[in-house]
Design a binder for these strands. Structure first.
Lengths: 209, 209
DNA sequence: GTATCAATGCGAGACGTCTCGTCTTTCATC
DNA sequence: GATGAAAGACGAGACGTCTCGCATTGATAC
């Protein structure tokens, strides 16, 4: 039984110091040159304390990012997703915020690192997707569902596909650096997607589909 | 002058063996655990032969992928992009092929590894994008341009955005593993995008889709 | 034409260095 | 007196350089 140390005795102080150090360091040196030794040194903890509680540096960073997105939620007062009744405006607002996050080095570095690590490590990728990504996608989907209920979107809309059509192209441009990110870009994206799925501003409209 | 070995004396046999070994190994152990020593051993070449011609293991893998996509072009007889006059069908065809490639382990592993490595290593990422990605995106863009010229798409269509709307969501689902890939998925994607940009099959069409 | 020879890439692997993850020791806390 | 934590010693393994013969090449001499 080499496993499972007693979690109740765990030092919260050390935990936080480790997560903070990981976030800082990944921004300074990048993911590839991020070492557990450096995290331990910066956090003022022994290496073993990290190895005791996390299986890999990727896992540390995942926890760190989770706490980071937790903070963001509290700061921004994000209980959910804006719902002004104007779907187009709401989507543009959220995507603009996402663009801003991608452009914020503090957020960009760890997220990029995790995305990359998750792409090649199926285990980590699954946790990354389930714990960080899916909850966000679910917010989009919920907002879209209210639009369906309001008759602004066809009842048979593939919401999952629609969410990925909103998030996918932006994420693609960000990850691959094929072009600079801009608010105008996501605004145009929203317009094309909404038109593509048959969005109607107010009344049920007689046309198409 | 320690630089510039004589390229005319280079062993083509060794070059191919190295690229093949790199592709095989990256599928077996993943990018992170891929070592130049292992590539050399598998290829039956000396380490120095790799270090003489490539600056890093990432560069080896990039060359290997380039040769792989080169093969794919020859096999499929891809001189360009299908152009049957039916834009929707052509896009669906190409995206279905892309789905098949993503599902092919031989292609998936190295591409995934490179994408991930490129995401965190800006240098490599730039070369990856320029040499592998952009040429493919350019094929899409060219096909779309002929559609514009044929009056099937509005003259002011943002082709770049449109290409990313086609490729982005698929790549996203592939990388993040948020859902299984399927032909039906990309078919639906094409339909929404085309409707969103105002695609008309033949004549200017009056109806709302 | 063929024999010789210097130049250069190649396969093999030894070498010193670096960083990894584990193990050991000592102290603090419950 | 257990157990976690800080510090660092330790072996493992990959790095990139190097040194060796061997094979191939192109130039020169006969």
């Amino acid at each position: 039984m080499s496993k499972s140390p007693d979690a109740t005795r765990r030092s919260e102080r050390s935990r936080r110091a480790i997560l903070d150090a990981a976030l800082t360091l990944v921004g300074e040196v990048g993911y590839n040159k991020l070492t557990i030794e450096a995290i331990a040194a910066r956090a003022g903890v022994g290496k073993q304390t990290i190895y005791r509680w996390w299986p890999s540096k990727a896992a540390v960073l995942l926890d760190a990012s989770l706490s980071l997105s937790g903070e963001a939620v509290e700061e921004g007062g994000w209980t959910g997703f804006p719902d002004t009744g104007d779907l187009a405006a709401d989507l543009k607002t959220v995507l603009r915020i996402t663009v801003d996050q991608f452009l914020d080095e503090r957020y960009d570095a760890p997220t990029r690192a995790l995305t990359a690590a998750g792409a090649t490590d199926p285990d980590l990728g699954t946790r990354f997707t389930e714990q960080l990504l899916e909850p966000q996608l679910a917010l989009y989907e919920a907002r879209l569902r209210t639009a369906v209920d309001a008759g602004q979107l066809p009842a048979d809309t593939d919401l999952r596909l629609m969410v990925e059509m909103l998030v996918g192209p932006l994420t693609y441009r960000w990850l691959m650096r094929t072009a600079p990110l801009a608010h105008a870009h996501t605004d145009a994206l929203v317009d094309v997607v909404l038109r593509g799925v048959g969005y109607v501003t107010t009344r049920p409209a007689a046309a198409g589909a």
